[in-house]
Amino acid sequence: MAEQCAAVPFADLSIQWQAIRERALPDLLKLFESSEYCLGSWVSAFERDFAQYVGSRHAVAVNSGTSALHLALLAAGIGPGDRVILPSHTFVATLWAVLYVGAEPILCDIDPRTGTMDVEDARRRMLPGCKAIMPVHLYGQPVDMQAVLALAQEKGLLIIEDVAQAHGARFAGRSVGSIGSYGCFSFYPGKNLGAAGEGGMVVTEDGQAAEKMRALRNHGQYQRWIHQELGYNYRMEGIQGLILGHKLPLLPGWTDERRRIAKRYEEGLADLPLLLPRVLNHDHVFHLYVIRTPQREGLRRYLEERLIQTGIHYPIPVHRQPCYTQLQLRLDAEYPQTDLFTEQCLSLPLFVGMSDAQIERVVAAIRDYFAEGSRE
């Protein structure tokens, strides 16, 4: 069977390019003729449009989501002697940003239903000197921001949202990223809104913080050739602003398509011995469709044999990374929900332009696996 079927890729980003190709190509020619390679008018236009899309006053474009997190922490005044609480289940960039500013990361466990931050566990693990909380809207699912806001108000914490995987998601009617003091986005190509390379953004209501981040991303220059503080080369390239600007108007429709695919998976897999994504009382934009099963490795091999690509996000949690021990970071507790989640999670193919036939192939193969019995 496998030899007769085309592969189902985990993602196919070429479909997005075809959606903007006709409109983007003339602008690409203009960009090369004008030589606006770093920052420039296309980046500025994208900053304006993205701020409006999210509902924030300011947007600062940078070269990656990691840089966005780093600049947000710097603008917030977080540094040595401070502590920042974040979930143990996240991409490692969330941790890096805290370490870059010299602060101490404090990890909390996750909600087993969603894989996102368990805010009550964060409360239990809070230590003196905690200055900020970094909720990560994972897989497209918003964190319970009502609980985050309550904890932040109680403990006097700044909220820095990691929105790398949740472009367009909303909580209680507000776009995630606009709820805390800072919202940090990634435009890595595979994201719901992806660049033609790397890219990131920080949104904020604070005009002074935005001005500071604009200087920091450009070698600490508030004025040309005057470097008032330690700066970085975090500028967004003009081509990324151009491509993202053309994709942004299509994002709402693409989000609806992701939700439609997720619904097809939910209907097709509902009666199987799997844990499917839980959508709580807020939006989910399905950056990833993550199922859970103790038979993950057997199921993954079975799908691979049938030319169906899958992913694992993420197989090794932050607290079990080799660097965590090497950096002598605090690890005085267990994270049972994170450990269980990362042992069982499996990301199925889900991308804009995925055909009904591809969806049905994935569903049918998973059903066949369980019908035939465990291959572990």
Rank of each mutant, 00 (worst) to 15 (best):
R224I: 07
L274W: 02
N281R: 13
V202K: 03
G207I: 00
P273I: 02
L274E: 00
A270G: 07
R260E: 08
Q321V: 05
P317G: 10
G298C: 01
D256F: 09
D271H: 13
P294G: 00
G231K: 10
R264F: 08
G197T: 06
T255Q: 11
G207H: 03
G298T: 01
L272H: 05
E305R: 15
D256L: 13
Y222D: 00
E297L: 12
R300C: 08
Q223M: 03
T293Q: 00
R214K: 12
E304M: 11
R296G: 05
A215W: 00
P252L: 01
H313V: 12
G199F: 12
G238N: 03
I312G: 01
W254L: 07
G238F: 05
G199R: 12
E305S: 12
M236A: 07
H282D: 08
G194R: 11
D206V: 12
I239C: 08
A195I: 10
L248V: 08
G194S: 09
G311W: 11
Y324F: 04
P322W: 00
H287S: 14
T310I: 00
R260Y: 11
A270K: 13
I261R: 06
L288M: 12
V318Y: 10
L307I: 11
E304H: 15
E304A: 14
G253P: 03
L288E: 15
R320G: 01
H287Y: 15
I316V: 15
V202W: 06
R320M: 07
Q309E: 15
Y265L: 09
L269Q: 05
E257M: 14
A195N: 15
V285S: 03
Q221N: 05
P252W: 02
M236S: 04
A196K: 10
I308V: 06
C323H: 08
A209P: 04
L193Y: 08
L274T: 00
